[in-house]
């Protein structure tokens, strides 16, 4: 590593630039959420960074359907989409991570299914739209459109390759001797997996959960195609926050966006310990 000052400035300059690019829209969303209707656009005045008259009105509006600023009454409020998003994203993540972990372990440890990893990956090589139309037809004929299980299932299937591949690389890194040692000590195969291997990759498991959850949580396309009314998720619902009179309801969308950011952030903080600690398969002297 060089420590010449010019590199110092270039390096930190670039980091700063990246941070600005990432954070400014986020900050903009954060302040927008508290701006009253007239401050949303330039239509009635100047745009400011901070709200001139901060208000909870946007939050009130999306949850109750009305607020004094706006004449339009919302026919659907945000609780139901938030619930739908939470339920389907969590279930979809559970399906993908459980199936992906078991599959990845089998492929990593037993010399079978050599083509499986690549065929699983193939699932991701199709353009989503090319896959989604047949899926829509299948789901419709199975009566799974606009149901929580139908959406959870497709989330699980779509994110399975990620869970599978992430977990496979982690399992590949667990030395086989660790498992052999546990076997010789008297463990059954399943117990080896449950008591030894899985605890050793729990950091990896946590990262995989977070990653898959964020994928499911932020999905728009699938929910748009597979839900109608009852199980519309946050991103789809957000798109409906517009009216003929008021146009795009930026403040309300920002408020909803702020709420939608909470679960990934909370989850990220909750498992931060594992994310930071990373993977230490230390006790092997090679």
């Amino acid at each position: 590593m060089t420590s010449r000052p010019v590199f110092f400035f270039v390096r930190y300059g670039l980091i700063l630039l990246a941070l600005v690019i990432v954070l400014i829209p986020t900050v903009w969303m954060g302040t927008m959420a508290f701006k009253p209707f007239p401050e949303w656009t330039t239509a009635t005045g100047d745009l400011t960074w901070l709200p001139k008259e901060a208000t909870w009105g946007n939050f009130e509006y999306i949850f109750t359907g009305q607020t004094e600023d706006l004449l339009v009454t919302l026919d659907r409020t945000a609780e139901r989409p938030i619930l739908a998003s939470l339920l389907t994203a969590v279930l979809g993540t559970a399906i993908a991570v459980i199936a992906g972990t078991l599959g990845a372990y089998s492929v990593s440890r037993f010399k079978i299914g050599n083509n499986l990893p690549l065929s699983v990956l193939q699932l991701r090589l199709f353009p989503p739209l090319a896959v989604m139309i047949p899926v829509m037809i299948m789901w419709a004929s199975l009566g799974m459109v606009d149901t929580w299980w139908g959406l959870s299932l497709i989330y699980g299937i779509v994110t399975l390759p990620f869970a599978f591949w992430l977990m496979k690389t982690f399992f590949d890194d667990v030395p086989i001797e660790i498992e052999e040692a546990a076997l010789v000590e008297g463990c059954s195969r399943f117990r080896v997996f449950w008591k030894v291997t899985l605890p050793m990759v729990k950091a990896a498991l946590a990262s995989t959960c977070l990653f898959v959850f964020i994928l499911n949580w932020s999905d728009y396309l699938i929910a748009l195609l597979l839900t109608r009314k009852d199980w519309v998720t946050i991103p789809v619902y957000m798109n409906s926050l517009a009216s003929a009179m008021g146009g795009q309801m930026y403040g309300c969308k920002a408020a909803l966006g702020l709420i939608a950011a909470i679960p990934p952030v909370v989850l990220g903080i909750a498992i931060q310990k594992y994310l930071v600690r990373g993977l230490t398969f230390g006790a092997l002297k090679q």
């Binding site: 660790i178 040692a181 076997l183 729990k202 006790a283 092997l284």
Partner: peptide, 19 residues
């Protein structure tokens, strides 16, 4: 299977359960 053989095995790289 190894778990029914009643043997002890010390591996070259020790294979300690680090967790």
């Amino acid at each position: 299977p190894p778990n029914q053989r009643d043997v002890g095995f010390v591996f070259q790289n020790y294979a300690i359960f680090t967790h």
